[in-house]
């Protein structure tokens, strides 16, 4: 009996070892290394221990705390738009796609998912060209519809740039919630749906009363994936608005703030310790968000055994 338990232990350990090794080398070690960097400051070629001074600078020196708050606010706005636009539309598209009588289902699914497979740089470039006041088609299109007065250089105005970027990102990423929820909808057994129909539910009631509660865990999962993706976002803003979050830091998010501080920009020199500190703050924000999801949200959502 004893030797059998030992055997079992070694089998489990050997199965876990590769994943643990890869995870340690590529995730845990860089994370600890980053954390360590935040406690030091660069003096010429030397790294000098500075305790929590980088955190003090970031949170209490107006030069940095102002940028941090601005970036954090923009990040929340970015997330808000995604939750408000991307996920509901994603659910709607998935619901329509799962209608059994829909024709050309595969074609629509591919078209909706296509932008997700494009490189962010391509997406940024395409939209920049579409929206460009000089070369873009949007002003011409609006003009043809006698709506030319509606045209604005959306990516260049402080009031509209972040919303425009968020919508570009929504356009690109909408395929992911759509696919996840589509898969969840397909996994609902026909018996349950048939039973609901026999009870007299119409299509609308079927969706709200039967399908939606069953896919709630997937919707919550989509929300937390959106949260992680949005608070780690960087590429789209960098590709279209540069490291300064132009215009006037109105699209500056934590990712670009971190990049600019870490690597420097133009004549501004980089500060790797402060950059690492911002990265750590980002990590903790996401950690808190995910913890709330795991310990509060996920426990309250009822999962049904299908």
């Amino acid at each position: 009996m004893h030797s059998q338990a030992r055997r079992k232990f070694w089998i489990i350990a050997s199965l876990l070892a590769p994943a643990l090794a890869i995870y340690t080398v590529f995730m845990i070690y860089p994370l600890v290394g980053t954390l360590q960097t935040t406690f030091y400051q660069t003096d010429g070629k030397l790294q000098v221990f500075a305790g929590l001074d980088n955190y003090r600078k970031l949170f209490f020196e107006p030069l940095f705390s102002h940028q941090l708050l601005n970036a954090l606010g923009n990040n929340f706005y970015f997330f808000f738009i995604h939750m408000l636009v991307q996920n509901p539309i994603g659910i709607a598209l998935a619901a329509v796609l799962s209608v059994p009588t829909l024709r050309f289902k595969g074609l629509f699914r591919s078209i909706f998912f296509l932008p997700t497979m494009l490189s962010v740089v391509v997406v940024g470039f395409i939209w920049q060209l579409i929206l460009s006041p000089l070369w873009g088609v949007s002003s011409g299109l609006l003009g043809a519809l006698h709506l030319g007065f509606l045209f604005k250089p959306w990516l260049g105005l402080e009031g509209t740039a972040l919303t425009t970027l968020s919508l570009m990102s929504v356009w690109q990423n909408i395929g992911i919630p759509m696919m996840l929820i589509y898969a969840a909808l397909l996994s609902i057994p026909d018996e349950i749906l048939d039973a609901a129909r026999i009870d007299g539910a119409n299509g609308w009631e079927l969706f709200w009363g039967t399908k939606l509660p069953l896919i709630m865990p997937t919707i919550a999962l989509t929300a937390i994936l959106t949260f992680i993706g949005n608070f780690n976002a960087f590429d789209l803003v960098f590709a279209t608005q540069g490291a300064l979050g132009l215009p006037n830091f109105s699209t500056d998010i934590l990712g670009t703030f971190m990049f600019r501080t870490f690597f420097g920009n133009n004549l501004q020199q980089g500060d790797l310790n402060l950059g690492a500190t911002i990265a750590m703050v980002m990590f903790f924000i996401i950690l808190v968000g995910v913890s709330i999801y795991l310990f509060v949200v996920q426990r309250r959502i009822t999962s049904y055994q299908l």
Binding site: L131, S132, P133, L134, W135, S139, F151, K152, P153, W154, L155, G156, L157, P247
Partner: peptide, 16 residues
Amino acid sequence: MAPGFEAQGYSDSQQL
């Protein structure tokens, strides 16, 4: 400047 100069980058100006 051109309408929409707020969204006009350096290379846009050069091309213009």
